[in-house]
Design a protein around this nucleic acid. Structure first.
Length: 274
DNA sequence: CCGACAACCTGTGAGC
DNA sequence: TGCTCACAGGTTGTCG
């Protein structure tokens, strides 16, 4: 999926196209996503005017006066706005949901692997069970090296698994975990509880830098991500270690190593990261 | 409570 | 060319 920068890129692309529009219809072709699409989604959204498109962690929040559509793109999801109610582009096998808008456009949700989800809530979205236990946003004051240090005391899990925990900080997925740890000079397999305060301060800064630069570049293009306007992101060109097995480390020139850590492929420089 | 792992899906690319 | 296998951006739930 889209990691946080891709979701934020999608949000920025969608917001001006959706805000102020009224939902005139909802077509659900495939309700079996990560969680079933609510059967009454059409009834909830019908006739509502979209007031804002927000984001919490990797969830997109489409707000209306009476409730919020909570959308997750999973590993392979994407959203596009199509003109002409989408009739000019007949839905493909993985185009699971269309949300029709008053101006004749169509918000189309596509997700081959179906790890994404759509929820509706009439409550403030932060109260929803999916969002209630999330940790701080990386750019919020609640996220810092000091909080990382405190939370990690006694933790024996790898620091890579630790910074990918959504209760610790949201938005650090598999790509940016490797990239952040490289910038901070920390070995991804090191136990989280055995990293000192100064190194956590560097890590917090690295997370903000990496995510911030990726957002500025419009996200990372890998296999199947494109921004909502169809243009690719350009951050992939600036990845230091992710997917670069055997290539020279940009800092020391030694070969980048790949290792399975926290059940996911992980890349690091054994010379620069301790 | 903690940590490891399975599970949910389809598509793609490598290797034979 | 075609088959099989490993792996892919996420997250919850379960088990020991």
């Amino acid at each position: 999926m889209p990691e946080l920068p891709e979701v934020e890129t999608t949000r920025r692309g969608l917001a001006p196209l959706l805000e102020g529009e009224t939902v005139t219809g909802v077509v659900v072709r495939q309700p079996r996503l990560r969680w079933p699409v609510p059967g009454d989604l059409a009834a909830c959204l019908q006739g509502q005017t979209i007031t804002a498109v927000g984001r919490r962690a990797k969830y997109l929040l489409v707000a209306t006066p009476v409730g919020t559509l909570i959308l997750h793109l999973g590993m392979s999801g994407s959203l596009r706005v199509l003109p002409g109610g989408g009739t000019q582009q007949p839905p493909g096998a993985h185009d699971h949901v269309d949300i029709l808008l008053g101006n004749g456009a169509c918000l189309r949700y596509t997700d081959p692997r179906r790890f994404g989800s759509l929820h509706w809530t009439a409550e403030p979205p932060e109260h929803h069970w999916l969002l209630a236990r999330l940790g701080p946003e990386p750019f919020a004051p609640g996220f810092s090296g000091d909080t990382l240090y405190r939370q990690s005391r006694g933790r024996r899990t790898s620091i890579k698994a630790f910074i990918m925990e959504s209760r610790v900080v949201v938005g650090v997925g598999n790509i940016y975990a490797s990239e952040s740890l490289f910038r901070a000079g920390i070995h991804p397999a090191r136990a989280a509880g055995r990293v000192g305060r100064d190194r956590y301060r560097r890590l917090a800064e690295a997370v903000r830098e990496v995510l911030g630069e990726a957002i500025a570049a419009g996200g990372t293009t890998l296999r199947d991500f494109t921004a909502s306007d169809g243009r690719p992101g350009y951050f992939a060109q600036t990845l230091n270690v992710y997917g670069r097995t055997g290539e020279p480390c940009p800092r020391c020139g030694g070969p980048i190593r790949q290792q399975r850590i926290a059940q996911r492929s992980t890349w690091y420089c054994p010379g620069c990261q301790r």
